[in-house]
Design a protein around this nucleic acid. Sequence first.
DNA 1: GTTGAAAATAGCACGAA
DNA 2: TTCGTGCTATTTTCAAC
Lengths: 159, 159
Amino acid sequence: MSNPKVPHRLQYENSPIDAVDSRILAALDADSRLSMSELARLVGMSAPAVSERVRRLEAGGVIRGFTLDVDARALGYQIRALVRIRPLPGKLHVVEKLIQDTPQFIECDKITGDDPFLARLVVHSIEEMDDVLEALSDYAVTSTAVIKGTSVARRLPPL
Amino acid sequence: MSNPKVPHRLQYENSPIDAVDSRILAALDADSRLSMSELARLVGMSAPAVSERVRRLEAGGVIRGFTLDVDARALGYQIRALVRIRPLPGKLHVVEKLIQDTPQFIECDKITGDDPFLARLVVHSIEEMDDVLEALSDYAVTSTAVIKGTSVARRLPPL
DNA sequence: GTTGAAAATAGCACGAA
DNA sequence: TTCGTGCTATTTTCAAC
């Protein structure tokens, strides 16, 4: 079970993070550009100490990276949609590559069930959406649900 | 159309970002903790100039925030799933609140179609998944697809 | 984890294109 | 306007404890 070449379990799974790490994660999730000194003030520790904790959270795989929250709408992508994609028989890999090569798909998960892929799409217009889906139509059946709003904005898993 | 109280269009929609802004966004998306001086070196400008551009991208709504990419699996959430949720008649708002109050739902969009909500769920085990879905069962019908993998990791819209 | 010193950085004013 | 330079305050990093 514990084949070291196949780490199905990552470091922190068995040594749960403590309260300080939780506060660090929450603070950095809200603003990943916080200075280590400011973060240190927030959690009541010295800067080198929190800096070392952040480093360990990265090394342990908890923090996969520091990233950006970009508003697609502000870039003119006025329509967001979630697209379920069911490749025709034998077309699974072709379809996956096509999704990956279509930059308007900004995210795609492989899932169980009738439709192997669920992808997040951003487009400027209905016409652009039609172009993207049309390009898939020879290889897959798609079901598109336009996003009307957000009930839960991306948030951390419970810590 | 241009009711200032309802800014359906944000700043950058009509004045597209230039090549330098694109490189700034790509670099910060890869590592939002880059120092302004390092970022300046990457794009070949002075630090104050780059700093001002980042400030404008924030003010213009393109950059909504600087955030963290946390690996739920490293925290012990070994199962991720996408859940379509269809509230029973009259239960829409109850269900939405229930989703929001269930921290294992780390994201939820309101969408068109038969199922008004599509939520992303993280749980430690099948038992925990059952607990969460069971709590919804008096108010909604759910369809759950377990995530087997990722074809496209979250990426920026085409710039 | 803490402290303290050296190097790097950020933020600001100001002038130039 | 937007960018570059130079100054100062802050921050990061490393050492020693």
